[in-house]
Amino acid sequence: MSGKVTELESLLVPIIEALGYNCWGIEYLSQGRHTLLRVYIDHPDGISVEACAAVSRQASAVLDVEDPISGDYTLEVSSPGMDRPLFRLEQYADYVGEQAKIRLRVPYDGRRNFQGVIRGIEGEDVILQVEDHEYLLPIDSIDKSNIIPRF
């Protein structure tokens, strides 16, 4: 997790929790002059548009005062949805047995993209079964990961 995401989490998680929601994860994407801050919130009863708006208002106020992002940025607040991204090891543990797509920052075993079944966690690694092979993917090397919804 980048230092910027850690800084943003320290500012935003208390606000999100004070409003009664869980911070599922934060994505900070800076590409040239365009910066996107995406905040995923979750709740056992689901997330409404009103919940996203409430978190967005409070987060905007704190971000305006603390000013952790230089220049213009776009703030998005949403539910993780059915194809929920995974950010932390404990989230992988909660989805053992589910299909996931994982993209690594650097190639591992000659590839960056994996799709398979989450088998668990071991230390700081995610165990992913791809066909008949199990991979231990270090959490720090995972760039992006999403659950593949079942219909």
Rank of each mutant, 00 (worst) to 15 (best):
V77A: 02
Y21W: 09
S48G: 02
Y135W: 13
E122Y: 07
R84C: 01
V117T: 15
R150C: 08
P149K: 04
S79F: 01
E90H: 15
L12A: 03
E131N: 13
L63T: 03
P149W: 00
S79M: 02
S70W: 12
G123A: 09
I47T: 01
R105T: 14
E76T: 08
G81V: 05
V39Q: 00
C23H: 07
N22P: 00
D140T: 13
A93H: 13
V106C: 08
V65D: 11
R111L: 10
L104Y: 03
H34R: 15
V126Q: 01
L29F: 06
S10D: 09
V126M: 10
N146K: 15
L11E: 01
D140W: 09
V126D: 06
Y28S: 05
F114R: 11
P14L: 03
Y92S: 09
R111H: 13
E122V: 10
M82L: 15
L36Y: 06
L86W: 06
A54L: 11
F114E: 09
G81M: 02
E98P: 08
I142D: 08
L89R: 12
I148S: 01
S141D: 15
I41K: 03
E131H: 14
A61S: 14
G123C: 07
G71T: 02
V77G: 02
L104F: 07
F87K: 11
R88C: 03
S60L: 05
P149Y: 03
Y40E: 09
L136G: 00
S70R: 13
C52E: 05
D132C: 01
D42I: 07
N113D: 15
G120R: 06
I127T: 11
G46Q: 02
D94E: 15
G97I: 03
I47W: 06
L29G: 00
V65W: 05
I148V: 15
I26L: 09
V96K: 02
P44H: 07
L89C: 10
G116L: 02
Y92E: 06
K101Q: 14
E122T: 11
F151N: 10
G116K: 00
D67T: 03
A93V: 10
Y108E: 15
L63K: 03
N146R: 15
P85W: 01
A59T: 05
F114A: 10
M1H: 12
C23N: 12
I16Y: 00
K101V: 12
P80W: 04
V62K: 11
I15T: 12
A61M: 11
R105F: 14
Y28M: 04
G123E: 08
R33Y: 10
D132P: 08
V55P: 03
G3S: 13
G81K: 07
H133I: 12
Y135G: 03
D94P: 12
V126C: 05
E122L: 12
P149S: 08
E131A: 14
E76F: 02
S145M: 06
V5I: 15
I139D: 09
